[in-house]
């Protein structure tokens, strides 16, 4: 067990290195010169060549790219992600300041997603072929297809304009998290509900369920005590991945709701070609995502200790 965990943790290192290369290359190869952007931002008039060159030297943008990458990586390994071009504050501090806002709506969205997806998926599977199943499938298909910006505006129209229950945008008070969380959560719920249904249907067709039925156990007892446990394993994997997406992929939703999270920070950083911030964000979110993936994998063992660690062993029930 310990060896397995250690190997999984060590395997993250080359992954993070790959992420760092991608983060650095993509931000540096994108069209747009950060020195020009900074000069425009700080000057009242279009900047001169001399001003732009002075800024390029000041921010070490005149150094060769491999050297800049090596220096950045060395600093990042020490936990220093550099200084933001835009705010002049350490990147890590900026990420730490914005991350709680993103975490707040990501957690709320995940909760909403699970609260909707699990009962919906289970009921749809148990009542397979019924009107409820058809309605649930149609609903989840719609939910998974709706673009988040469209859903966001729709929810504003309903809950803010028509009902007047919730604020349109901004982060002030608990209620302001409801709409962005709902926007993110509904899309995720649709995906998880479909997965729960299909996974449960697969398990319900297995031999040990037939045995349980033959023993005379009630349908709900079979589902609740036997089938759901097995069916939840792929749902758990998908939940872990979905949570990673919610943390790193809430950019559009944060823009719509003026939510001051890391997505909002990333958008501004991309506009300003704030390389340290973009690189820091990608590396940070890459680390969070891979850690979540690891935790998800390890949680299988926690939920069902019979799951084998090696590929060649079969699950015994």
């Amino acid at each position: 067990m310990k060896r397995y965990v250690l190997i999984r943790i060590l395997s993250l290192i080359p992954l993070w290195l790959g992420i760092s290369v991608l983060a650095f290359a993509l931000s540096n190869l994108a069209p747009g010169d950060p020195a020009t952007v900074i000069a425009h931002r700080l000057s009242d008039a279009p900047p001169s060549d001399e001003q732009i060159e002075a800024i390029r030297r000041e921010y070490h943008l005149d150094e060769p790219m491999p050297l800049r990458y090596a220096l950045w990586l060395a600093s990042a390994a020490r936990g220093d992600l550099g200084i933001s071009y835009r705010t002049k504050r350490p990147v890590f501090k900026e990420l730490a300041a914005h991350f709680p806002a993103t975490l707040q709506i990501a957690c709320a969205a995940l909760i909403i997603a699970l609260v909707i997806a699990l009962p919906l998926g289970v009921l749809a599977a148990v009542r397979r072929g019924s009107w409820f199943d058809h309605a649930a499938r149609a609903g989840t298909l719609l939910g998974a297809s709706l673009p988040s910006y469209w859903l966001g505006y729709l929810l504003i129209l309903i809950f803010s304009l028509a009902l007047g229950w919730l604020p349109v945008a901004g982060r002030e008070g608990m209620s302001s998290a409801a709409l962005p969380a709902l926007t993110l959560g509904l899309g995720t719920a649709a995906t998880l509900a479909r997965l729960t249904r299909s996974s449960l249907l697969e398990v319900l067709g297995e031999d040990f369920i037939r045995t349980a039925r033959a023993k005379g156990l009630g349908e709900w007892a079979i589902v609740w005590r036997h089938a759901l446990k097995s069916a939840l394993i792929p749902v758990l994997t998908a939940t872990g991945i979905a949570f990673g997406h919610l943390l790193g992929g809430a950019v559009i939703v944060e823009e719509i709701f003026a939510w001051p999270g890391v997505g909002h920070l990333l958008m501004n950083s991309i506009y300003d070609r704030d390389y340290p911030m973009i690189q820091g964000f990608v590396l940070f979110m890459g680390a969070v995502f891979t850690m979540l993936s690891l935790i998800t994998d390890l949680s299988y063992l926690w939920i069902d200790p019979r799951i084998p660690l090696a590929k060649n062993k079969r699950v015994g029930r």
């Binding site: 505006y153 504003i156 803010s160 304009l161 349109v168 945008a169 901004g170 823009e255 719509i256 003026a258």
Partner: peptide, 18 residues
């Protein structure tokens, strides 16, 4: 001054009275 970068959100915030 509340910063609402999205144009549509700004209009909706006015209509909702926020």
């Amino acid at each position: 001054f509340r910063f609402l970068p999205d144009d549509t959100t700004r209009v909706l915030a006015l209509q909702a009275g926020q």
